[in-house]
Each structure stands twice: as structure tokens, then as C-alpha cells.
Design a protein around this nucleic acid. Structure first.
Lengths: 216, 216
DNA sequence: GGGACGGTTCGGCGCGGGCCGAAGTGTTCC
DNA sequence: GGAACACTTCGGCCCGCGCCGAACCGTCCC
């Protein structure tokens, strides 16, 4: 259980945990952004990032004078999700600005590579209603046809997976299928990011697209 | 991500991690047993256990002068499994005795409430061959009939789940179905514990039973 | 070249926590 | 009652680590 203690140790610090939480949006952040997000000095952030990269949780990508870091893959996102799901959501925001930001996140956001929040729940209900996935979020045979019409190609990666939503406490669709749909929605401009962060919103074109597909 | 850091902190210590690893066999251990297992003083173990119980990872059960502790439930076992799967198996045993004990564990053991090791793999292959579960370990319709004949009753708990075997690096059957089969096999005396610990073996009666069920 | 900027390295500080042994509590058994 | 035993509490030790600021290194832009 040596390895268990090591990986737990990487996440056992509030600053490193805050980094990982921010990176759960699936995007790459610079060291400074993360430092500001967690409220520590740049030097401190730098050391933490080195540890997280060496521990295999993060990958880095140097570009000019910037150091971009991102989660090392879906397996890391899944690990973090399951730990957050166990720990439960944190006590909630104090400031007004933080509160409105967290409301926007509750409405819709990315969770690593798929949609979450109320938007994720709506997508899930729609797909269940269409018979694309079962109530347990397994892709059905007609569902696979439906996905392939949207350009989905099966791969090594697990087809579908339930990801526990930590604002809604309800599972939404993750895995290869969830990631593909999220990507398609972004490509078509149906979903776009708002504000600074990971909150997303369904654009008018998206509302229409979802209606045409029968999701809503 | 406050909560994430807290739960990670509970597991970030090698002694506490060793406790959890031992408890992954699904049985209740006394404080002394765990202390000996991890090689620390009884007083040290006592403090660690208090923290793990307060953190919700373990439950305790006082009986006379003994303090029994066990994992707080399948959700904890699943959390630990996913972290161990990420971290990978530890470097391997030094002493001869440790080596033969770990060989016995590799042949068969309990993983919280289901079978693991080569025995778990054999069970899984058999069930796939019988069509009880798909290759992805989802229970089929005929499989549910088969399970009900063995006394299985569906519950709230997730029906089946793939648990990554950390000696074999192959998934075996966990979840409600895996737990039920394990329990039935113990009740019928088909599987029994050997030696001090969590290693198990298929008894002669079990070999015959498995043949009759078509598992092997 | 010079200045601004992102990131890193290093030294030093302080706190937290893991460990033990000794002493104490409650239980079991004779 | 007395002895053995499982566990807990407490005091004290020490190491690890998270943090910062200062100095430094590269890159980018004028």
C-alpha cells in the first residue's frame, strides 16, 4: 500500500488539491493562473506542479515562457471525481461574486471532457428518453447507431461511465460517449464557455439543435 | 477541493494506508492485529484508527476489550481500489515467507466482498463463457435468471462492476452480483480461507460445484 | 540593448504530524 | 482479589513539508 500513500500524499495538500480541482475542467492552465487561483506565491506553485507532474497526475507542456499543465488523462479525472464524490462538496461560497460564479457552474460546466451541472443532467435525461443509453448509462444498440451518426468512433476507451455530479448529486454521462458529445457540441457552437472559467451555457443554436435531435 | 485534501490526507500516511490495505479483505480486524501488520506501536495504531473512523473511512465495533474496525462500506472499498489501481502494485516481497504468502494471495483472495486473484479471474471467465455477464461485466438477461436461481435479489446497489485486480492486472467481477456469488460460495463451503489472512482456496466441493454450474 | 514578465531555485522559517514509551482505564479470566 | 490483556491518553521528540522572498534564468517585446 506504499503506492496508495504516495498518490494520496500528492492530493493531501489543499493547494495541490485546489490545482487539481481547477484542472478538472479539462483545460490546460499556466502556473501563474493556478497560483492565483489557489492564493499562493508563484514559487510555491512551481514546486507543487513539479511534484504533481513527477507523480503522474499532471502533464506539462512548455510554450515559450509559459508552463501549461493539464490532467494526465481521463483516468486521473476519474480518480479525482471518485474522491470528490466520497468527500462530498465543500462548504459554500462567502462572497457575492463567488456565489454567482458557482451558480453559473451549477447550471453548466465541463467535467474534464464531458458536460456536467444541470446541463449535464438535462443531456443525460434526454439520452435516456431517446433510448440512447439505459438508466444505468450503458449505451444501447440503437444508441450506438445514433452516436455513429454524430461521428462517434468506438475506441479502446470505456464507452460510457456514470460520473457523479457534485453539485447535483446525480450521475451524468462520462466516458468516450460523453466526451464525444461534448466535443461535437463545442464544435457546432451549441455550447460555449462563459466568463473566465469552466462554466458553459447552451447557446440558442444549441437549444434548437438539441430539440432537433430530440434531446429536450 | 477542501474535502478532497482531507480524505487524501487520511490515506497519505503509509501506516494508515497499510491499515486500509489490510482491511480491503472485507473483514474486521482488531487494533492490535493492524498495529502488528503495519509494524507500529499499539498507541500509534489507536490514534490512526480514531482518525480513520472520524473521517468516515472505517467503522468500529467495540466488543469487550477489543476494538474491531472494518471499511465503512463498498464505497470505501471502491475508492481504495481505484487509487491502488492508479498507483500500481507495490514493489515485491523480500522474505521467503512473505513471498509464499503473496503467492497464496495471488491464487485467490477476497477483495472486500468478492473474489479476486486467479480465482476471481477464473470465475469471471466462466461467467462470460456462460453468458451470465458480457465481456464488459454487465449482467445479461439470462444472466439475471441464472443469478436468481442462486438466490440473488436485486437491490439498490450497483448490479455489477469491474474491479481491477492488482496482482493480475485484469478486471474481475465486483458489485452486488460479485458479492452475492462470493457469499454463496462461502456458505456452501466451496471456498474457504487458508492461513492467517485473506487468501482463499477453492475446496474440492467447490471444484465440483463450479463444474456443475458450468463455471469451469 | 533594456525592461517586463513567467517561471525556477534556494535558504530559512514555523507548524503539523507521526512515532514512541509510560501511565492509566476497562475487561476478562483465574 | 489479582494478573493478564486490549486499548487509550499524554508528553515529548524529531522530521518533513508548505510557505515565502530574494536572486536568478529565459523569453518576449519594444
Amino acid at each position: 500500500m506504499e503506492g496508495l500513500a504516495q498518490v494520496a500524499g500528492l492530493l493531501a495538500d489543499r493547494t495541490r488539491a485546489a490545482f487539481c480541482g481547477a484542472l478538472l475542467d479539462g483545460r490546460a492552465w499556466t502556473a501563474r493562473e493556478l497560483a492565483a487561483h489557489a492564493g499562493v506565491a508563484a514559487s510555491t506553485a512551481s514546486e507543487h506542479l513539479t511534484r504533481l507532474v513527477e507523480g503522474g497526475l499532471l502533464v506539462e507542456h512548455r510554450q515559450g515562457r509559459h508552463r501549461y499543465v493539464a490532467l494526465a488523462g481521463p483516468h486521473v479525472a476519474e480518480l479525482l471525481e471518485s474522491m470528490v464524490a466520497f468527500a462530498g462538496p465543500d462548504a459554500r461560497p462567502r462572497s457575492l461574486r463567488a456565489s454567482s460564479a458557482s451558480e453559473a457552474m451549477a447550471r453548466g460546466r465541463t467535467c474534464y471532457d464531458h458536460l456536467a451541472g444541470q446541463l449535464g443532467i438535462a443531456l443525460r435525461s434526454g439520452l435516456v428518453g431517446l433510448g440512447v443509453v439505459t438508466a444505468e448509462l450503458a449505451v444501447t444498440e440503437p444508441g450506438m447507431v445514433w452516436l455513429k451518426e454524430l461521428g462517434f468512433e468506438p475506441s479502446q476507451r470505456q464507452l460510457s461511465r456514470a460520473c457523479l455530479d457534485w453539485t447535483e448529486r446525480v450521475p451524468h454521462l462520462a466516458g468516450a460517449a460523453g466526451a464525444h458529445l461534448c466535443r461535437v457540441f463545442f464544435e457546432r457552437g451549441w455550447v460555449r464557455r462563459i466568463g473566465s472559467g469552466r462554466a458553459v451555457v447552451l447557446a440558442p443554436a444549441g437549444e434548437q439543435g438539441w430539440r432537433e435531435l430530440g434531446i429536450v
